[in-house]
C-alpha cells in the first residue's frame, strides 16, 4: 500500500475513492482511445503492415525512407507549412475583427452572432462542395463578381498557383467559431478600464492597443494554439475538392498520410508519418507556449 494512502484518514480515503471512481470513466477512455493507439502507432511505425496481414518488423526503415528517399514527404510537408502560414494569420486577424464587430451594441446582434457561427458547425464536406461552386472559374459567384469590376478571376482550385491559397481562403468560412471565443474574451474585459481611458482622452485606436489587445492575449494564445493544430490537420478540402492537385499543389501532409494508409495499404509508413506530424505539432505548440510569457498578459 503506498505511503500516501496509509497516511490518509478514513474520511480522506473515502473521499479519494469517490474521486478516483468519478475519474475512472475518463481515465479508461483516455487509456483505450488515446494512450494505447499512440503507443500502438509507435510500434506500427517500426513495421511494414498492410492492415490485414501481420506486421513485419523493419526497425527504423520507415523513418529512413521518410527523411532520405521520399520526395513526397518533403513536398507534402512544404504544402502544409505554406497552408499554415497563410491560413493561421487570416483566421486569427479576421476572427478578431469579426468579434470586435459582434461586440458592438446594436439591435439584432444575437441574430448576427448566430449567423456568423453557423458555418463553424456545418460539415466540412458540404462546405467544400459549396466552395467548388463559389470558385468555379467561369460560372462561380466570385469570378462573376470580379468580372463586374473588370477583373478576370483566376482558376482557383484548378490552377497550380492558386489552389493552395484557395483552400486557405476557404478556411475563413469558419472564422465565426473563432470570433465567438474572442467575443467571450472581449466581454470579460472590465468596462471601467475603457471608461478610465476615455476620461484620460484615449481614442478608440489607442484603447484597442492599450486595453483590448493586451487583455485579450490569453484568448489569443488559446486561439493560436487551437488554430495552429487545426491548420496542420488540413485534409477534407484536399480530399473532396482537389485530390491533392493540381500538380500536388494541395498535397497536404494528412492527405498523404491517408493515401499511404488506406489506398496504398502502407500502414507502417503511415504510422511513421502520423508520428512525425504529431512531433511537429507538439514542437510548434511548445514553442508558442514557451514564448507566451513574453506576450500573454494575465491580469492576476
Amino acid at each position: 500500500m503506498p505511503s500516501f494512502w496509509r497516511n490518509m484518514t478514513a474520511q480522506e480515503r473515502r473521499s479519494a475513492r469517490t474521486g478516483y471512481l468519478a475519474l475512472a470513466p475518463w481515465a479508461f477512455g483516455f487509456l483505450v482511445f488515446y494512450a494505447f493507439p499512440i503507443v500502438a502507432t509507435f510500434y506500427f511505425s517500426l513495421t511494414q503492415w498492410t492492415l490485414v496481414d501481420p506486421p513485419v518488423w523493419v526497425g527504423l526503415d520507415n523513418y529512413t525512407r521518410m527523411f532520405t528517399r521520399d520526395p513526397l514527404f518533403l513536398s507534402s510537408l512544404k504544402a502544409t507549412l505554406l497552408f499554415v502560414a497563410l491560413s493561421l494569420p487570416l483566421k486569427l486577424v479576421l476572427g478578431l475583427m469579426l468579434a470586435l464587430l459582434l461586440n458592438l451594441k446594436i439591435a439584432g446582434m444575437n441574430f448576427f452572432r448566430t449567423v456568423f457561427f453557423i458555418p463553424a458547425v456545418i460539415s466540412g464536406v458540404a462546405v467544400s462542395l459549396m466552395w467548388i461552386w463559389f470558385l468555379q472559374p467561369d460560372t462561380g459567384v466570385v469570378n462573376t463578381l470580379l468580372s463586374y469590376v473588370g477583373v478576370q478571376g483566376p482558376y482557383w482550385f484548378w490552377d497550380r498557383d492558386w489552389a493552395l491559397p484557395s483552400v486557405a481562403i476557404m478556411s475563413i468560412w469558419k472564422v465565426g467559431g473563432a470570433a465567438i471565443i474572442y467575443l467571450a474574451g472581449l466581454q470579460n474585459i472590465p468596462a471601467h478600464l475603457y471608461e478610465a481611458a476615455e476620461i484620460d482622452g484615449a481614442g478608440k485606436w489607442r484603447r484597442f492597443w492599450r486595453i483590448t489587445l493586451p487583455l485579450l492575449t490569453p484568448t489569443l494564445f488559446f486561439q493560436l494554439i487551437i488554430e495552429l493544430i487545426d491548420a496542420f490537420k488540413i485534409f477534407t478540402e484536399a480530399f473532396v475538392i482537389t485530390k491533392g492537385g493540381p500538380l500536388k499543389a494541395t498535397y497536404f501532409f494528412l492527405y498523404y498520410f491517408y493515401e499511404e494508409a488506406f489506398r496504398n495499404f502502407n500502414m507502417g509508413y503511415a504510422s511513421a508519418l502520423a508520428l512525425f506530424l504529431l512531433a511537429v505539432i507538439m514542437g510548434c505548440t511548445v514553442f508558442v507556449y514557451r514564448t507566451s510569457d513574453r506576450w500573454v498578459y494575465y491580469e492576476n
Binding site: W158, D159, R160, P246, L247, K248, E259, R263, F265
Partner: peptide, 20 residues
C-alpha cells in the same frame, strides 16, 4: 499501379489537363 505509381506520374496528366 493504382496507388503508388499512378501518383508518381500524375503530374504528366495534370500538365496536359492544365494546358501547361
Amino acid at each position: 499501379w493504382r496507388g503508388a505509381v499512378i501518383r508518381a506520374v500524375s503530374d504528366a496528366w495534370d500538365l496536359i489537363m492544365l494546358g501547361e
